[in-house]
């Protein structure tokens, strides 16, 4: 009985097509950076390298969610709704990595 309200969004930019291609090239570049770093520092294992990969991953995620999934143009509540719960995931992952290391120490 309720109608499927087709609600207007915060207007996406007029040059959406251009922006999509721009995003594509950014993602492409970031992946290339990933691989380049990987090859350059192949024998070099450190937390910094891993941190860099994770940061690059998060940046890529930002572009995919923001532009491709249109999040950047939605009202601000939606991003909160989706992103705030991810804190729990990060908490879980951090704790589990600590716990994994501890397991390694016990064995």
């Amino acid at each position: 009985m309720h109608i499927e309200e087709h609600l207007e969004h915060t207007e996406p930019p007029k040059d959406m097509k251009k922006q999509i291609w721009k995003t594509f090239w950014i993602l492409f570049a970031l992946t290339v950076v990933d691989i380049a770093v990987y090859f350059q520092l192949m024998e070099y294992h450190s937390g910094y390298k891993n941190a860099l990969f994770i940061i690059l991953g998060v940046v890529k995620a930002y572009f995919i969610v923001g532009i491709f999934m249109h999040m950047k143009f939605e009202k601000k509540w939606l991003p909160y709704l989706i992103i705030v719960p991810m804190i729990f995931v990060m908490y879980l992952i951090t704790l589990m990595v600590i716990e994994g290391n501890y397991t390694s120490f016990l064995r």
Binding site: I93, M96, V97, E99, G100, N101, T103, S104, R107
Partner: peptide
């Protein structure tokens, strides 16, 4: 993550 890190040492 857990299992991989449990192989850390």
């Amino acid at each position: 993550g857990f299992i991989r890190h449990s192989y850390a040492s």
